[in-house]
Amino acid sequence: MMTSEKLLKQIDFIKEIDKLKYIQRRTKLFNSDRCENNAEHSWHLALMAIVLAEHADESVDLLKVIKMVLIHDIVEIDAGDTFIYDNEKAHSNTEEERLAAKRIFGMLPEQQAEELISIWEEFEAGATREAQFAKAMDRLEPLLQNSSNNGGTWNEPGVNYDKVYAKKSVIKDGSPVLWEYAESLIDDGVKRGILKKS
């Protein structure tokens, strides 16, 4: 049996993305001292999207949302994870991440590479309803984690109510219902003393 070049490219990509399991995030698992890795984070977002899709602001293409949340952090294999509250490096699409997207997704056969790069760019731009809902999942999960971990990354230097509120407010673009719930968690964090007002 002769293995096709297409299949070999797909297998090489699958092996490469295993590295996502080694990228540690700052947020910790629910009620835990262990940091999650990017693969765990992406898996969790995919299930959240399935379970919470009914709360999207508008009807969404759920398969596209799932693709977005599963691939959105793959670029961090090359670019590394940027802490959302980092004061030095903006948590936004950088040239470094674009190069990573081209290299990693470029390992795939051309048509698949183009599709995944396009989906990744759509997520980063955050303009479509699918991207907005996917971003809502991406911002909600660590909020739930920090709430369960006595503040978690909210205890990092320089993180306060204003920063958390500003970073999490994109949730409302994807789901006003989930934003209302998120706001209540943020306010509860202040009441519990695990999130500081400036």
Rank of each mutant, 00 (worst) to 15 (best):
residue 21 K to Q: 10
residue 15 K to W: 07
residue 109 P to F: 09
residue 65 V to G: 06
residue 120 W to A: 04
residue 152 G to A: 03
residue 104 I to S: 06
residue 169 S to Q: 01
residue 18 D to Q: 08
residue 152 G to K: 04
residue 39 A to C: 11
residue 36 E to P: 05
residue 44 H to T: 15
residue 180 E to N: 02
residue 168 K to P: 00
residue 67 K to R: 14
residue 168 K to D: 05
residue 143 L to H: 03
residue 16 E to L: 07
residue 75 V to I: 13
residue 138 D to L: 12
residue 113 A to H: 07
residue 198 S to L: 09
residue 126 G to L: 04
residue 81 D to I: 14
residue 25 R to W: 06
residue 47 L to I: 10
residue 56 A to H: 00
residue 49 A to G: 06
residue 169 S to P: 00
residue 120 W to L: 03
residue 63 L to H: 11
residue 56 A to C: 09
residue 150 N to D: 13
residue 74 I to G: 02
residue 70 L to E: 09
residue 163 K to I: 06
residue 41 H to D: 15
residue 20 L to I: 13
residue 158 G to T: 03
residue 92 S to T: 10
residue 128 T to G: 02
residue 125 A to P: 00
residue 44 H to S: 12
residue 19 K to Y: 10
residue 39 A to K: 14
residue 147 S to N: 10
residue 46 A to V: 10
residue 153 T to P: 03
residue 131 A to G: 04
residue 77 I to V: 13
residue 77 I to D: 15
residue 167 K to M: 02
residue 151 G to L: 07
residue 187 D to Q: 14
residue 178 L to E: 10
residue 55 H to C: 14
residue 5 E to P: 03
residue 184 S to N: 08
residue 27 T to A: 11
residue 137 M to D: 02
residue 156 E to V: 04
residue 169 S to D: 03
residue 52 L to W: 10
residue 181 Y to M: 11
residue 5 E to K: 02
residue 131 A to R: 00
residue 153 T to D: 06
residue 7 L to M: 13
residue 76 E to A: 13
residue 70 L to D: 11
residue 104 I to R: 04
residue 198 S to R: 09
residue 144 L to S: 05
residue 80 G to L: 11
residue 83 F to G: 10
residue 30 F to H: 09
residue 27 T to E: 14
residue 164 V to I: 03
residue 185 L to C: 07
residue 94 T to F: 08
residue 5 E to Y: 07
residue 52 L to Q: 08
residue 152 G to Q: 08
residue 185 L to G: 04
residue 21 K to S: 09
residue 147 S to A: 15
residue 154 W to L: 11
residue 76 E to K: 14
residue 34 R to A: 13
residue 92 S to W: 13
residue 61 D to N: 14
residue 188 D to C: 08
residue 29 L to H: 09
residue 63 L to P: 03
residue 135 K to I: 14
residue 40 E to K: 11
residue 85 Y to C: 10
residue 23 I to R: 12
residue 125 A to D: 00
residue 49 A to V: 01
residue 118 S to I: 02
residue 33 D to S: 12
residue 149 N to W: 10
residue 92 S to V: 15
residue 6 K to W: 04
residue 4 S to P: 00
residue 87 N to W: 00
residue 43 W to H: 11
residue 172 K to T: 07
residue 66 I to K: 09
residue 5 E to V: 08
residue 26 R to W: 05
residue 79 A to Y: 08
residue 13 F to P: 09
residue 88 E to V: 15
residue 144 L to W: 11
residue 101 A to T: 04
residue 12 D to T: 07
residue 22 Y to Q: 15
residue 116 L to I: 04
residue 183 E to N: 05
residue 46 A to Y: 06
residue 104 I to G: 12
residue 49 A to T: 09
residue 90 A to W: 13
residue 44 H to D: 15
residue 161 Y to V: 02
residue 95 E to N: 03
residue 43 W to Y: 12
residue 35 C to I: 14
residue 158 G to N: 01
residue 172 K to R: 00
residue 170 V to Y: 02
residue 129 R to Q: 03
residue 68 M to Y: 06
residue 198 S to A: 10
residue 39 A to F: 14
residue 132 Q to N: 01
residue 142 P to F: 11
residue 12 D to I: 05
residue 34 R to S: 05
